[in-house]
């Protein structure tokens, strides 16, 4: 009980910092998810009839995810300096794989007979993509987007180490001052803010999925 009240004191005295870091993390999530989504969905669409190119891009995206995050955040510093830029690049590279994988899986799962009949009725390749393939693959693609967004919330805590800000600031400063007063409270603040953000984003994206899905949900 003591811990909880002292944590609450800690947070309520730092309202401004909480707001700033939450907004910083949120900026990462939005920009990274949008950028990675645009690149990965385009890549998945372009390579949908080219198995070799598709497998190659999936392999490259997988390689990114195997690089330790601490390393990936730091190797871009010589190129772009400290702060937002190296963090954004690292998070972007991580976020590609889940969306790309789900885009290729979703597009490949469209029944050949559906494509055959679409073509047979005179839909152009672009119309087939926009009216048939993407709408059918959309729920799967959106699931990939959600994974990437959550991944970004978690990994963006590292950004603080390259002066990129975000809720990771609380974790870093707490860690640096351990075991001084308020150090544990600081770490907990970072963790709880991360969790709360992840939960909120998950709920929002699930809602978006329900709104945009045109699959029949009712049963006969």
């Amino acid at each position: 009980m003591d811990g909880l009240t002292s944590w609450w004191d800690f947070v309520s005295n730092r309202g401004d910092q909480v707001l700033t870091t939450v907004l910083e993390t949120l900026t990462y999530v939005v920009t990274v998810t949008v950028a990675a989504g645009a690149v990965a969905i385009t890549l998945g669409v372009v390579t949908r009839h080219r198995p070799f190119a598709r497998d190659l891009s999936l392999a490259i995206a997988s390689v990114f995810l195997t690089i330790p995050s601490l390393a990936l955040f730091t190797i871009f510093i010589p190129l772009v300096g400290l702060g937002f830029a190296p963090s954004f690049i690292a998070l972007f590279l991580y976020a590609i794989l889940p969306i790309l994988r789900n885009t290729t899986t979703g597009l490949a799962a469209v029944e050949p007979s559906v494509l055959e009949s679409a073509r047979g009725m005179g839909l152009t390749p672009t119309q087939v993509l926009l009216k048939v393939q993407l709408p059918l693959a959309w729920p799967v693609i959106l699931a990939g987007v959600r994974v990437s967004a959550l991944l970004t919330v978690g990994i963006s805590a590292i950004a603080t180490l390259v002066a990129g800000g975000g809720v990771g600031d609380f974790i870093k400063s707490g860690l640096a001052r351990l075991p001084l007063p308020n150090s544990l409270e600081s770490i907990w603040t970072g963790v709880i803010l991360s969790l709360a953000l992840a939960l909120t984003i998950d709920i929002v994206l699930r809602g978006l999925g329900r709104l945009t899905a045109r699959q029949p949900t009712r049963t006969v």
Binding site: E111, S113, V114, L115, E116, S117, A118, R119, G120, M121, G122, L123, T124, K131, V132, P135, L136, R214, Q215
Partner: peptide, 30 residues
């Protein structure tokens, strides 16, 4: 070929209805 196909009805064994569109929307395709 796309213009030609719009003038010719095409029915296949697996039907290939669009699962994300209603019956009416399917029929309205062409």
């Amino acid at each position: 070929p796309n213009k030609l196909r719009r003038r010719i009805g095409y029915v296949i064994q697996q039907v290939g209805l669009f699962p994300h569109r209603t019956i009416a929307e399917n029929i309205a395709t062409v």
